[in-house]
Simulated assay, not measured.
Amino acid sequence: MRKLLYLTGLFILYSMQSMAQANDYVQIQAGSYQLGDTASLANPKRTVYIESFWISKFELTNAEFEKFVQATSYKTLAERYHNAMVFEPGLAEFRWLQDSTAYWRFPNGVSRGGIEAKMDHPVTCISYKDVLAYCRWADCRLPSFDEWEVAARAGSEGYYFEGFSKENMSEYANVWHGRDHLKADYSDGYLYTSPVGKFKPSPWGLFDIFGNVFEFCTGKLHGDGDRYVAHARGGSWWCSKNSCSAFNTVYIGSVRPNASFSNLGFRVVKKAFTPGDKDF
């Protein structure tokens, strides 16, 4: 009897843990979805079939990445090679600075402060290779191009999910509202990243799908050829209506797999939840 009660208690505990994890994810149903756009060469209009998957409601935070670093003593590429790219107001459009002091704990360089008060912000200044290392440790993966787009569209067949527009984007996305990047823009309260979940979610319950940070995805574009190229989607805090309006469901950005930028992060996918899954 005691053994039965013990086993029952374990099952309830595992079930509660699994439910808690599922609350941080959205399940995307299997089915056929229309993706892409007729005007895009990289992402042409097409219909794809997607298996069901679970995608995180939020971009991965500094606090979550710190757990990985503490458990593994992992050193990011930016820490090893001192090659991270950061931004400060006053730079010409699409110009970034290489800062040898920048890495995920100081994503805009030591001189611009650390993340002590920003543990709930998305982790940045990490490379695609760093992200893959995290996913191996956490038993998760990145979304594919198609999975990300299905989740981002939330049932819409347009450039944005239903309810989002360039006119009301400040309600849904941390983006740059200034005319250019010569002066600091605090229009929405943040110069760089914002806490995850600070803005309104999509109809399917995903936060920051547009803006805040570009999100790494897996996949290969026709133009990649034999090159090893990483890709990211959704736009970032740097993007604006006048520069890099990549906060939409069609644009697919490209970056070197070893590169680390202060506007690049990720969210993860986990296929299913079963009793005993570890909380990462």
Rank of each mutant, 00 (worst) to 15 (best):
L7M: 13
L10M: 12
I12R: 07
S15I: 11
M16D: 05
S18C: 10
Q21W: 04
Q21E: 14
Q21R: 11
Q21H: 07
N23W: 05
I28Y: 00
G36F: 01
T38R: 13
T38E: 15
L41T: 08
P44Q: 08
K45Y: 06
Y49S: 11
E51M: 06
F53C: 07
F58D: 00
F58Y: 14
F65C: 02
F65R: 01
K67W: 04
K67Q: 15
K67H: 13
K67G: 01
F68N: 01
Q70E: 14
A71V: 03
R80K: 15
H82A: 12
H82G: 04
F87D: 00
P89E: 01
F94I: 08
F94W: 10
R95F: 13
R95T: 13
Q98E: 14
D99Y: 01
S100V: 10
S100G: 02
A102F: 00
R105F: 10
P107A: 06
P107W: 02
S111R: 11
S111V: 11
R112L: 14
R112Q: 15
G114H: 04
G114R: 04
I115P: 08
H121A: 04
P122M: 04
P122D: 02
C125W: 00
S127P: 07
D130Q: 03
L132C: 12
Y134S: 02
A138G: 08
C140A: 10
F145L: 10
F145W: 02
R153F: 04
A154W: 00
A154G: 05
G155K: 10
E157C: 05
Y159I: 07
G163K: 09
S165L: 09
K166D: 13
N168P: 08
N168G: 09
E171P: 01
E171C: 08
A173I: 03
N174I: 01
V175I: 15
V175W: 00
V175L: 09
W176I: 02
G178A: 05
G178T: 04
R179E: 14
R179V: 10
R179T: 10
K183V: 11
A184T: 07
Y186M: 11
S187H: 14
Y190P: 04
L191Q: 14
T193R: 05
T193M: 08
P195V: 04
V196M: 03
G197D: 02
G197A: 06
K198W: 09
N212C: 06
E215F: 02
F216R: 03
K220N: 04
L221C: 06
A230C: 06
K241V: 14
N242I: 05
S243R: 07
F247N: 05
T249H: 05
Y251W: 13
V255Q: 08
R256A: 14
R256Y: 07
P257L: 03
F261D: 00
S262M: 12
F266C: 02
K270N: 08
K271V: 03
K271N: 15
A272K: 13
F273G: 05
F273M: 05
